[in-house]
């Protein structure tokens, strides 16, 4: 069986600074896979490479077995990959509703996710429909950025550090919503620095270090083995 997403020996640079040194990974349909690693190891760059935002210098990215390396971002999105960036990237001068409406219009994929459906997933957004995105709290912006990406009805969601900078209570609410998405069958590739959030969600993990995969295995292995966790992440 071919994986939904597969990276083979991906090398990516920003100008002359090389960041990824041959990252290989697989994500199967329905799985939640976590990229774990400290700040600066290349998690975001891996996601940008998949999305076509930064084209890899070498290596191959396969989506449902098809080579999508070098595709422009809008075609990657239309093929079914949704990107939720770590800095959220809300259109600050557009209202919540306008953010969602724009996403719906530029998405070429129709499916179960409509504005009403994402309002049901995050009822808070319905109350904030007319508020400019720039005036939402961090947690509200995180809900909006996930909701906005869902408007494209993706099969795979790239979630870059969704818990970053949020209060613990907000993180718990968010975790519960993402678990719901997972149970509904959405495939997720998550990037995280901490183990709490990621191990609550992930089936498998890849630990990144200096732009390469240092460890890969079931999330349970890290969950049960404090010594391994310590060795890999110094946590």
């Amino acid at each position: 069986m071919t994986a939904l997403l597969e990276l083979r020996e991906v090398h990516t640079s920003y100008g002359i600074s090389r960041v990824l040194f041959g990252v290989s990974l697989e994500v199967a349909r329905g799985e939640c896979v976590c990229l774990l690693g400290r700040n600066g190891v290349g998690k975001t760059t891996t996601m940008r490479s998949i999305m076509g935002l930064t084209t890899p210098a070498e290596g191959t990215i396969l989506w449902r077995g098809e080579d999508i390396t070098g595709w422009p971002p809008h075609l990657v999105a239309r093929a079914g990959i949704g990107f939720v960036p770590e800095d959220r990237r809300i259109f600050g001068e557009l209202t919540t509703w306008e953010n969602l409406d724009v996403a719906q219009r530029v998405a070429a994929r129709r499916g179960p996710w409509t504005i009403e459906a994402v309002y049901d997933l995050f009822p808070k957004l319905r109350e904030l429909a007319d508020r400019p995105g720039g005036f939402l709290s961090g947690g509200e912006q995180q809900m909006l950025t996930i909701a906005r990406t869902l408007m494209g009805n993706p099969e795979l969601l790239l979630l870059d550090e969704p818990s970053e900078g949020l209060a613990p209570l907000v993180v718990d609410q968010l975790l519960e919503r993402i678990l719901l998405l997972k149970r509904q069958g959405l495939t997720i590739l998550l990037a995280e620095q901490g183990v709490d959030f990621s191990l609550a969600l992930a089936d498998r993990v890849y630990v990144l270090e200096k732009g390469a995969v240092r460890f890969s295995g079931p999330a349970a292995a890290l969950r049960d083995d404090a010594a391994l966790r310590h060795e890999l992440l110094a946590l």
Binding site: P73, H74, M151
Partner: peptide
Amino acid sequence: LDREMLSALGAN
């Protein structure tokens, strides 16, 4: 406001 984000949402 953010052309890169818009393209990642599927806009040409």
